[in-house]
Nucleic acid binder design. Structure first.
Length: 552
RNA sequence: UGCCUGAUAGUAUAAUGGUAGUACGACGGUUUUUGGUACCGUUUGUCUUGGUUCGAAUCCAGGUCGGGCAACCA
């Protein structure tokens, strides 16, 4: 493995803690998604970090749903999140929910009220915002701030008992209205929401805010290293403060820079818009940066884990080139995907000196990268073939080493041929290419002594099967759609999906199975889409092959 | 105008006071029955100004630039 890889800053912290004997050598992390959307590649970074850390240091990781806002959350999301984490190859120690702790959290709130550190405020949201001041002006208090402990206790109990409508009252921490950290200006701890919760049903009508739930949840589980993204840095003061005042397990929060990928968007809000406004075919559209989208596109768990390993973990803002993700999937699939032939844009090729009606069964390796071989399949060959339109040129430029009139090329796994003539329709489009073949040049028993520079793929017209192929490209035309003027949706790539409804594939591909990626030789990696049926195969292009041939 | 936070090749990420390295990309080459893969080589970097030091990417001070903070979201 990568034993000599240097440590990232969080691993350094863990190793220091371990060396200092902190937590008795125990490492317990957590992955805390809110079940209000599907997981995306940015979450994958966090998942790999949290679960990877635990794995590396003989610890464990809890999967904890941060479900403190019932109006936005749903079991549909819980299920998809669990599926995605599992698919990525990780196992959680415990499946937990912040809502499991609503009783504890309520008791914690009561405790803070008793300590004079929390109060019930009757102000409206607007009034509270106005009283908070601005980053440069201190906030102001109000009359509710001086309520007695007894009154606060009673009012908070009444809030819980449903005596007030939504928004009538909130519980606030009494900290410092003049703090330079806006989050410390008496933050809300609880709000009233008469809403049905996906787990606790109608038991509660008050729900804790993130800041009054997350740190305490970590503490209850005795999480040793609570890792989150940079935007939570200012929240750390609150995180530590509540833990200190409640005298509970001192979990520690550490922050890293979230992943940004170019040519896509990563916020759940924006992804939801793409889904709801029909710009994509659901959360798992192969163009989406969601885990489910990448899975449908043909990405493998190993490739995503490798990607997360390569991008590193640090505290500076970053924008990762999607090319790195593509490198990772190519690297993985090159070693595992079976090679097959498919002609995406067909033109007919006739071999003039090959006997009419003759057929041969040729053989092609499944994967030349596998040492010792990975078996082979049979490929029928005949007088008439489909080849790629772009693999022939009547007047080839100097560095073109595919087929031309008078030039030779090898048909993959078959014979060397020489272009002879073309047939065109009234518009001048080539409808047929005629060639001759060299009988002694058969793959595996070539005695022709001829060396050709190019090799092209082909399908026997008599034996060809048909399939639909979906060619995907980046969803956006600009690197950072969120940072452009106007609406990010204005920058969607109109050619992000090109459907080829009549692609010729070799007969063996009729055996293609979902979840087993194939390489269409010289074209890229493809995988069967979930819309595929026995009667109609549908392939998604995962990624092209790297193209070293740049014209001109 | 406040507070927090960060700055190393095009993009990421190391170097923890002692030779600025690695990966991806780009470019060039070798091999090749995939213009793929593999292998080899080249290219480009410490935000700025001072200071401390024999020696600074690293420590200190000022500046510049980026990100975040005033949701009954997480």
């Amino acid at each position: 493995m990568s034993e000599e890889r240097s440590l990232n800053f969080i691993e350094e912290i863990v190793e220091e803690d371990l060396a200092a004997g902190k937590n008795g050598g125990r490492v317990l992390t957590r992955f805390p998604p809110e079940p209000n959307g599907y997981l995306h590649i940015g979450h994958a970074k966090s998942i790999c970090l949290n679960f990877g850390l635990a794995k590396k240091y003989n610890g464990q990781t809890n999967l904890r749903f941060d479900d403190t806002n019932p109006v936005k959350e749903d079991v549909e999301y819980v299920d998809s999140i669990k599926e995605d984490v599992k698919w990525l190859g990780f196992e959680w120690a415990n499946e937990l929910y912040a809502s499991d702790y609503f009783d504890n959290l309520y008791d914690f709130a009561v405790l803070l009220i008793q300590k004079g550190l929390a109060y019930v405020d009757d102000s409206t949201a607007e009034e509270i915002a106005a009283q908070k001041g601005t980053p440069t002006e201190p906030g102001k208090g109000n009359q509710y701030r001086n309520r007695s402990v007894e009154e606060n206790l009673q009012l908070f109990a009444d809030m819980k008992d449903g005596k007030y409508p939504d928004g009538a009252k909130v519980l606030r921490a009494k900290i410092d209205l003049a703090s330079p950290n806006m989050l410390l200006r008496d933050p809300l701890m609880y709000r009233i929401k008469h809403a049905h919760h996906h787990r606790t049903g109608d038991k509660w009508c008050i729900y804790p805010m993130y800041d009054f739930a997350h740190g305490q949840s970590d503490a209850i589980e005795e999480i040793t290293h609570s890792i989150c993204t940079l935007e939570f840095v200012p929240h750390r003061a609150l995180y530590d403060l509540f833990i200190k005042e409640l005298e509970i397990f001192p979990s520690k929060q550490y922050e890293f820079a979230r992943l940004n990928l170019n040519y896509t968007v990563m916020s759940k809000r924006k992804l939801l818009q793409l889904v709801e406004d029909g710009f994509v075919d659901g959360w798992d559209d192969p163009r989406m940066p969601t885990i489910s989208g990448l899975r449908r596109r043909g990405y493998t768990p190993a490739s995503i884990r490798e990607f997360c390993e390569r991008i590193g973990v640090a505290k500076r803002e970053n924008m990762i080139d999607v090319g790195l993700l593509e490198f990772c999937i190519r690297e993985d699939l090159n070693k595992t995907a079976w090679r097959r032939m498919a002609v995406l844009d067909p033109v007919k090729l006739v071999i003039d000196n090959y006997a009419e009606g003759q057929t041969e069964i040729l053989h092609g390796e499944n994967n030349p990268e596998v040492e010792g071989g990975d078996g082979s399949r049979e490929i029928p060959f005949g007088k008439e073939l489909w080849i790629e339109r772009e693999d022939f040129m009547e007047v080839p430029p100097k560095k073109y080493f595919r087929l031309g009139i008078g030039t030779m090329v090898r048909l993959k796994n078959a014979y060397i041929i020489k272009g002879e003539s073309v047939v065109k329709d009234a518009d001048g489009n080539i409808t047929e290419i005629h060639c001759t073949y060299i009988p002694e040049s058969k793959s595996g028993s070539d005695t022709s002594g001829i060396n050709v520079k190019g090799t092209i793929h082909w399908i026997s017209t008599e034996h060809a099967k048909e399939a639909e192929v979906r060619m995907y490209d980046r969803l956006f035309q600009v690197e950072d759609p969120s940072n452009e003027d106007g609406d990010f949706k204005d920058y969607i790539n109109p050619n992000s999906l090109q459907i080829l409804d009549k692609v010729y594939i070799e007969p063996d591909l009729a055996n293609a199975v979902a979840g087993k990626p194939v390489q269409f030789i010289r074209k890229g990696y493809f995988t069967l889409d979930k819309n595929s049926t026995a009667g109609k195969l549908v392939f998604n292009r995962t990624v092209t092959l790297k193209d070293g041939w740049v014209k001109k």
